[in-house]
Simulated scan of single mutants.
Amino acid sequence: MTQKVRWGVLSTASIAQNHVIPAFMRAENAEVVAISSLSGRAEEVAEALGIEKAYDSYHEVLDDETIDAVYIPLPNSLHKEWAIRAAYKKKHILVEKPMALSSTDVLEIKQACLDNDVMIMEAFMYMLHPQHQRVKALIEEGAIGEVKHFESTFTFYLADRDSNIRMEKELGGGSLYDVGSYNVHAMRYILNEEPISVRSDAVIDEASGVDLTSVSYYTFKSGVTASLTSSFDHFHQNAYKVIGTEGMITVPYAYRPDNHGGLGEVILQTNTYTKTETFMNDLYRDEAEHISYAILNNQEPINTLTNSYQNMRVLESTTASFTHNETVTIDNDE
């Protein structure tokens, strides 16, 4: 393999056009050489973004032997199928979150990747922003005493819900699997612990059956608690707090610092002072370079398959809780 990973993209989804493909073009160790679309827009998008090849089917990308890896920004319900197809074509994979619609699906993807010796990473790009490493360091240093509670909110008002695939239940729609998956992921990442139970309530859209809002409460074996909110009905927020016995850490641009020019803030408050630290990065470029480096050097990426599996277990349990109106014990064994 060359020193640049050659990427193909399955679909002309807006996240690919507006964020991920331009980021791959900025990366030092990656390049996008092909894009595909079933809508006939591949050639138009390829020309606009300076991509060498345009295909009218996803299979053509997978059959292209010059392509090392694929990025999959398809609807959630198609992630499993095309990740497995890509694995059997020996393509490494970056797949949008959530990786699939169930933990069983994730295990099937994992087996396909192991059988074909390919790398895969679920695209929780927020992890690569340095603000989160700073939060973890502050916790480790005891800056807020003993951690007691984690609170996270990722919401926005979905205006085009009549035509947006996020409102299609059969495609894996709903606020929990969309923005709520970040809340769950960050809770587990920052606390470095798996929840043991969840009690969740949701506002369900009568027409589509998807959750417009979910509010969930988690408990941990250590005694820590967490409260998470996702919504398509609220003003935009993407923040979390870590509350301890002696202070609190707030991260106001936790999941989309790119909407603030790449700016991240970590605000530490104690009884005697408040301190704000700022961090900058090119989030999507860092994601592109990270997964490409992992591929080139045969190293496990920061967001592992085990992590993706565990995250899906929590999402499944949360859905079960608000569906059946009951507290659910979370099984964390793979």
Results as ranks from 00 to 15, higher is better:
residue 242 V to D: 00
residue 247 G to H: 01
residue 163 S to Y: 13
residue 117 D to L: 05
residue 131 Q to E: 11
residue 23 A to F: 08
residue 267 I to P: 00
residue 245 T to L: 08
residue 123 A to Y: 01
residue 19 H to Y: 14
residue 255 Y to N: 00
residue 153 T to Y: 06
residue 174 G to E: 07
residue 296 L to A: 14
residue 178 D to A: 15
residue 154 F to Y: 15
residue 57 S to V: 10
residue 118 V to G: 03
residue 215 V to L: 08
residue 313 R to I: 05
residue 200 S to C: 15
residue 323 T to E: 12
residue 25 M to N: 14
residue 66 T to K: 12
residue 215 V to M: 08
residue 4 K to M: 11
residue 209 G to V: 09
residue 142 G to F: 08
residue 198 V to W: 00
residue 106 V to F: 02
residue 204 I to K: 02
residue 284 Y to R: 04
residue 273 Y to G: 03
residue 244 G to T: 08
residue 139 I to Q: 00
residue 260 H to G: 04
residue 102 S to Y: 03
residue 126 Y to R: 12
residue 295 I to S: 03
residue 10 L to S: 06
residue 108 E to K: 07
residue 174 G to F: 04
residue 28 E to Y: 09
residue 48 A to L: 14
residue 154 F to K: 05
residue 57 S to W: 07
residue 278 T to E: 09
residue 2 T to I: 09
residue 146 E to S: 11
residue 105 D to M: 07
residue 244 G to E: 04
residue 59 H to E: 12
residue 153 T to F: 02
residue 226 A to M: 02
residue 277 E to I: 09
residue 25 M to Q: 13
residue 157 Y to V: 09
residue 225 T to M: 03
residue 184 V to Q: 04
residue 50 G to Q: 05
residue 311 N to R: 09
residue 73 P to F: 07
residue 148 K to V: 07
residue 97 K to P: 01
residue 189 Y to N: 04
residue 155 T to L: 02
residue 70 V to L: 12
residue 112 A to F: 06
residue 315 L to F: 06
residue 100 A to V: 06
residue 47 E to F: 04
residue 73 P to A: 14
residue 327 T to A: 07
residue 144 I to F: 03
residue 299 Q to L: 09
residue 156 F to K: 10
residue 283 L to Q: 10
residue 143 A to K: 07
